[in-house]
Design a protein around this nucleic acid. Structure first.
Lengths: 334, 334
DNA sequence: CTACAGGGTTAGAGCGCTCCAACCAATAGA
DNA sequence: TCTATTGGTTGGAGCGCTCTAACCCTGTAG
C-alpha cells in the first residue's frame, strides 16, 4: 500500500520537498501559483502528511491522548465528547485508549499513549496508583479527570463530590427523610469524597449515617440493597447511591423486594448520565457538568503545551437534578 | 521534558545504539551480559521506545485504529471491549477515535487514524458514504462492523439484521400478537436490514406490516410512539423497536400514555446492550454477540496484515433474549 | 599455523518529515 | 550604479529508530 510521500508530490508539482512542506503547514510565504500546483498534485496522488514523521521531525506533537478507565460508563463517554470537541477546535488530534478499570491494563494503556509522544494526556477516572500518575506526568503534560492529586505537575478537573452528596442528603432531608443510607463506591474514583460528603451532611442534620459497601455497577447496587433487606433491621426510607448505575441496580432490587420507588424508598443517583435521563428511568441524581469537564481538561492540557507551569485544580459545582425517584417521606409522588 | 533516546541508553550501557535496538526488540542474538546491562540502563533512564520513530523506520506498524461512530452507544463500547482484547493479545496497540454519528466528523476521524499509518483500521457502525470507505480501504486494511459492503478490499462483521427482526416478530406472533409495529432506525447502520426482516416476517405470517419512521435514540422512540398514540387508530399490541435505546424511549411514552408494558403493549429492542440487561429495564431484545464481533474484527484485520487478500464477510446469528417487556396478547406477564 | 565458521556487535544509510541557513530574483533606497 | 531589503524557494541536516552489511572475535577444523 505504498502511500505517496512529500517527495512524490514535490516531483509531480515540479517544486522542492521543502516547498511542499510549507504548503502542507499552511505557511503564508508561498506564492498562490505554486501553492495551487502543490495542492493539485497532492490531491491527484491522494497524499496526506505522515503524522508520525511530522512529529518526529518537529519534536512537537499535535496529538493529545485520553485514557478512559471505563468506556462502558456513559459518564466518561460524555466527558470524552467535551474533550474531543475542544481538542479538535484547537487543531489537535485525539486518540483514545481504555483500561477497563484494571490498574494493570490502565498502566499499559497509559504507557501506550506515552509511546506516541503526545503533546499531553488526559486520564479519565483512572484507578492506577498515584505513583504511576507521577511517573507519567514526568513524561508528558497530564490532566486528571475525576481523580484528585496534589502533584504540582498535574492538573485536575473534578466535581466537588463532597458537596454533591451533601446536595442529595439535603434534598432528602427536605422531603422529610431521616433514615438515609449511602451505597459506597468502594475503590472507585471519587468514592471516598462522596462518602465523606454524605457523612458530614448527615451529621450536620443530626442524623445517623449508614454506609453500605458497594461499587460503581448496577449489580453491586442490587447486591447492597439485598443485603440491607435481608439484614432485617428497619429499612432506610431513602438511599444516596454511589452513582447512577449503582442507583438503577438498587431500584431493581428494591422493587424485587416489594418496595416501591419513590413511594416507599427514595433513591438518588450520581453523575446524571444519559441513563438517568432516560424517561423510563427518570432518576433523581447529582449532575456533574460532564461536557464542560471534558472541555476544561482539554484546555488545561493545551495551556500546558503552550507553556503554563503552575498547576490548575478545578473543582466544579455539582447540582441536583430532581426527577421521579424521590418523594416526600411516606408520601405520594409529588 | 526531553525524554531519553536509544543513544542515551547505549552510552550509559557502554554499547552501540544498534545493540540497544536489538535488545528492545527482544532479539535472541544478544549475550545475557549485554542484554542485562542495556535493560538496567533503560530502567535507570526511564527509557521506552519511541513508537513513531520505530514505525517510521521499520515501515511497519503495530498500531490498529478503531473509529467508533458513537461512543455513547453501549453497543459499540462492548464491541470495542472485544476488539481491544484481541488486539492486545496479539501484541498490537489500539487507538480509538470517534465521529459522533456525523459523516463529516467521521471522515475527519478516519483521516486522522490513517495519518498514523496504522497496520489496519476498523470502522464501527460508520455513517460515511461508501466512497469514503473505499478511499480509506486503499490506504490501509479495513474492516467494517455493523455496516455492509461488497468491496473486495474490505472485510465485514455483521449480525444478520434480517434474521434478528424476524426472531422478534416470530416471538411476538408466538405470543398471539397480530398488530405489530416496527420503529425504523432511519439512516442508522443496519436499519434497512432490520426493517426488511420485519416486513418479510410479517408477510410470512400473513400480517400487515406497519413501519413508523424513527431513529436510534430514546427520544426518537418516544416521539414515534406519541405519533402512534395521537394518530388515533387502533394501537398496536406489540412493537419491534429499532434498537434498545429506541425501545426504552418507546416504553416511556407508552407508560405516559397510560399503556402498561407488557400487559397492554409488548416491546422488543435490538442489540442487547447493557442497558437492556439492567434489571430495572429488563428489556426483551435481540442479542448480537458484541464481544465476539469485536474479536472477529480484530482477527480479520490482523489476518490481512499477515497477508490474507480474499475478503472475509461474516454474518453472525443473532438470538432472542426474552425478558420482561413481552407478554402474551391481552394476557398477564408470564 | 592458517582458514573458516558463526555468534555477537557495530557503523551507516534511510524512513518522511521539519527547520535553518543560504540562496535567488526583483524591487527599493541611496 | 551599487547596496539593502524583501518575498519566495531550496538543499541539507537531523528527529529516533530499524535494518543490512560488514566487522571482530573466539573456537575449531584442515
Amino acid at each position: 500500500m505504498g502511500r505517496p510521500t512529500m517527495e512524490d508530490v514535490a516531483a509531480r508539482a515540479g517544486v522542492s520537498r521543502a516547498l511542499v512542506s510549507l504548503v502542507m503547514r499552511g505557511s503564508p510565504k508561498v506564492s498562490e501559483q505554486r501553492r495551487n500546483a502543490v495542492l493539485r498534485a497532492a490531491e491527484e496522488l491522494g497524499y496526506s502528511p505522515h503524522l508520525m514523521a511530522r512529529s518526529l521531525a518537529s519534536a512537537t506533537s499535535t496529538v493529545l491522548g485520553a485514557m478512559v478507565s471505563d468506556l462502558n460508563n456513559a459518564f466518561f463517554a460524555e466527558v470524552v465528547d467535551g474533550f474531543d470537541a475542544a481538542v479538535t477546535e484547537q487543531g489537535f488530534d485525539l486518540i483514545i485508549n481504555t483500561g477497563g478499570r484494571s490498574p494493570t491494563r490502565e498502566r499499559r494503556a497509559v504507557d501506550n499513549l506515552l509511546s506516541f509522544r503526545p503533546a499531553g494526556i488526559a486520564l479519565l477516572g483512572p484507578v492506577v496508583p498515584a505513583s504511576t500518575i507521577a511517573g507519567a506526568a514526568e513524561q508528558s503534560p497530564l490532566v486528571l479527570v475525576s481523580r484528585a492529586s496534589r502533584l504540582s505537575t498535574v492538573d485536575t478537573i473534578n466535581d466537588d463530590g463532597e458537596v454533591g452528596s451533601g446536595l442529595a442528603v439535603d434534598h432528602l432531608v427536605g422531603l422529610g427523610h431521616q433514615h438515609i443510607a449511602h451505597l459506597d463506591g468502594g475503590g472507585g474514583s471519587q468514592a471516598s469524597l462522596r462518602r465523606k460528603g454524605y457523612v458530614s451532611a448527615m451529621l450536620r442534620h443530626g442524623l445517623e449515617p449508614l454506609v453500605v459497601t458497594s461499587e460503581y455497577t448496577d449489580t453491586a447496587g442490587a447486591r447492597a440493597v439485598r443485603g440491607l433487606v435481608s439484614a432485617g433491621g428497619p429499612m432506610p426510607t431513602a438511599i444516596v447511591a454511589a452513582n447512577d448505575y449503582n442507583a438503577v441496580g438498587a431500584i431493581s432490587a428494591l422493587e424485587d423486594a416489594g418496595l416501591r420507588v419513590p413511594q416507599d424508598v427514595s433513591v438518588v443517583g450520581y453523575d446524571n448520565t444519559s441513563l438517568a435521563a432516560l424517561r423510563h428511568v427518570s432518576l433523581t441524581t447529582v449532575d456533574q457538568p460532564r461536557h464542560e469537564m471534558g472541555r476544561l481538561a482539554a484546555q488545561a492540557l493545551i495551556d500546558r503545551v503552550r507553556g503554563r507551569t503552575e498547576p490548575v485544580h478545578r473543582l466544579l459545582h455539582p447540582s441536583l437534578v430532581v426527577r421521579a425517584t424521590t418523594a416526600p417521606l411516606g408520601g405520594m409522588r409529588p
